[in-house]
Amino acid sequence: MLETIIEGVIAFMLIAGGAFAFIGSLGLTHLKDFYMRLHGPSKTTTLGVGCTLIGSLIYFSREDGPIIQELLITIFAFITAPVSAHMLAKSALHHKLKPDPRTRGNPVELESEKPKHAVEEAPQGDSPLP
């Protein structure tokens, strides 16, 4: 009986993790602009991977005592995901990526300014780097 319940919990965790990660990637694929795409992976994929890891933790803890190593990856993922999302958003603002026209609010960081590069080191083609 207890065995069945634990198996059910593991199965639920694995499927929920997969579903969350899939929805996150779906958001990454079909949302309109970069700032909106950032939401899917930073939240949903992190929780999806966290769910899968917890499912695997329960799976391996069934036989020989608690295995808490996988908790470390979960904690690490939850600490680092916001940091990389923040850095990505910062670099997108730095490149002045255009937000969707429906977006309200107009931050100073996105207003265009005069090009700082001299003529000979002007950006080539579409590349933002000189």
């Binding site: 700032y35 950032l38 939401h39 930073s42 939240k43 992190t46 939850f78 600490i79 995901a81 916001p82 940091v83 999302a85 923040h86 958003a89 910062k90 997108a92 603002l93 931050p107 960081e109």
Partner: peptide, 15 residues
């Protein structure tokens, strides 16, 4: 605070 904002409903701290 910035990390919390990123992980919670509908918001990402950008800059």
């Amino acid at each position: 605070l910035a990390s919390t904002i990123t992980m919670t409903p509908g918001t990402v701290s950008a800059h």
